[in-house]
Design a protein around this nucleic acid. Structure first.
Length: 186
DNA sequence: GCAAGGATATCG
DNA sequence: GATATCCTTGCA
């Protein structure tokens, strides 16, 4: 995951102040903020700070312990909607083969892949991720034996410039094959 | 290395 | 309204 904190953070969607898109970042913590990136991928964020302080954590990858078949089915359904697959039936077959060959650690190993594997949509923005009745929710977890969390710089935010590009605000289970981006730490 | 892909923020 | 940009991915 990656943290984006405050309007001063030049990598955050809040850097331009409140807008229609990022409004939920200014609201209650524990809500979902989902947005479309590069015209095709839905990214999941969790609002993290009290009302009035825009901040969120981007979920860059999920290590699936269950629901592997469901994740494959959702990815197939979601990705086959992309224009290039609708245009070319042969590509759709290739997608099927690629998904079948994708190990569980790689089914949700990227922010866009998390969105696809969970069947997420920007319309879910505002969902209370702490409400046990929500279709999508956060639950307490624990690190496995021998697992440790390390930090790195955030990914894909070169436009932010210094010092933001260097902030160690990406958090990753060291060596986790389900992580996206660098898994080994300096 | 780069195209795909559409919403967004900013400028005119 | 036009345009540059984007918290990405998979294939050349």
């Amino acid at each position: 995951m990656e943290a984006y904190i405050g309007e001063a953070d030049q990598a955050s969607h809040a850097r331009f102040g409140p807008t229609a898109r990022n409004a939920v970042m200014y609201g209650e913590p524990g809500r979902a903020y989902l947005y479309l990136v590069y015209g095709m991928h839905t990214c999941l964020n969790v609002v993290t700070e009290p009302v009035g302080r825009p901040a969120a954590v981007l979920v860059r990858a999920v290590h699936l312990d269950a629901g592997v078949d469901a994740a494959r089915a959702l990815r197939r359904r979601q990705e086959s909607r992309l224009k290039r697959f609708r245009r070319d039936p042969a590509l759709a077959g290739a997608l099927e083969a690629r998904l079948a060959a994708t190990p569980r650690e790689r089914l949700a190993s990227g922010p866009g892949l998390v969105g696809a594997a969970f069947g997420l949509d920007p319309a879910l923005t505002g969902l209370d991720l702490c409400d046990p009745r929500s279709r999508l929710r956060l639950e307490a977890g624990a690190l496995g034996p021998g697992e440790r969390i390390g930090t790195t710089a955030r990914i894909g935010i070169d436009y932010a410039g210094h010092p933001w590009v260097d902030r160690p605000w990406r958090f990753v289970i060291a060596g986790d094959p389900a992580a996206s981006g660098p898994r080994r730490l300096a």
